[in-house]
Design a protein around this nucleic acid. Structure first.
Lengths: 134, 134
DNA sequence: ATAATTCGGACCAATTTAGTCCAATATTAG
DNA sequence: CTAATATTGGACTAAATTGGTCCGAATTAT
């Protein structure tokens, strides 16, 4: 039960983006946040593919949030980078392979847990996080 | 953001223990739950060192819950096996090494998150989980 | 005694995470 | 047009964690 560095870096970068009105290049982000540049690159690409940030190429290019900071939550970021909690979620939803009784019981725990996590993190917007930072 | 198999196995074993009034041997547990025996052994030892289960050696020995199922929660088990969420928790509590602003902001997120997780899982007792199983 | 059990530690394999590197492509400033 | 600055995409490697095994020693009921 642990948050990866990827998610940690990604959230920090997102907070930085939320505080800027212009696109920021990977280099600029990596420098100001002291994050490994090449790795951050991969992270931002993941966020872009998920539609959370937008990239523009070229000399004045860089990354910017796709939606406003108010409309982007910590959950959006973390869930894309760290994925959901999935122990043995069946490939096809609906058909739970419930051979062991205790297995099903734990499934119930994971579902409850993930629901709460989503609820909690969805309530934390990037706007909130970047305001508090000032 | 993910629950390990260790925690998954440990929780299942704990549910099984909650349903038994006699100590269960590792072998018996592993068989009934279809879990890898040698690995389960390590898990139960961890739980024992944390004071959650008690072991008795010898031919009629085995493991039993240290407290009643009602007084043992999913949080107790999972938190011991999967540890807390610690990104960059300072070795010495209280003195947060807050060089980067966004770093501190994320710390706030982790704390909030872990608080909610603890709250949620503490509410789920082994008794609850083993009753539903019937 | 002996069979069944936990204990403790060393060890290994597999997976995941973290991180690097580079050639290709796009864009803009000058 | 050209040079500089960006992202894109993919292959690759290194480090860490997780998952799992093995075994000899200690303990205890029969």
């Amino acid at each position: 039960m642990k948050v990866s560095k990827k998610a940690y870096y990604g959230l920090r970068a997102s907070i930085a983006l939320a505080q800027s009105d212009r696109p920021l290049s990977i280099r600029a982000l990596a420098e100001s946040e002291h994050l490994p540049e090449d790795y951050l690159e991969k992270i931002l690409q993941t966020l872009r593919k998920a539609g959370l940030v937008e990239a523009t190429k070229g000399v004045t290019g860089g990354y910017a949030l796709a939606r406003s900071p108010k409309e982007t939550s910590a959950w959006d970021i973390l869930h894309v980078l760290d994925g959901p909690i999935e122990m043995f979620n069946p490939p096809v939803k609906g058909a739970l392979p419930c051979l062991q009784v205790s297995h099903c019981q734990t499934n119930q725990v994971w579902r409850t847990l993930e629901g709460k996590i989503e609820e909690t993190l969805s309530d934390i917007s990037l706007e909130h996080l970047s305001h508090n930072a000032r």
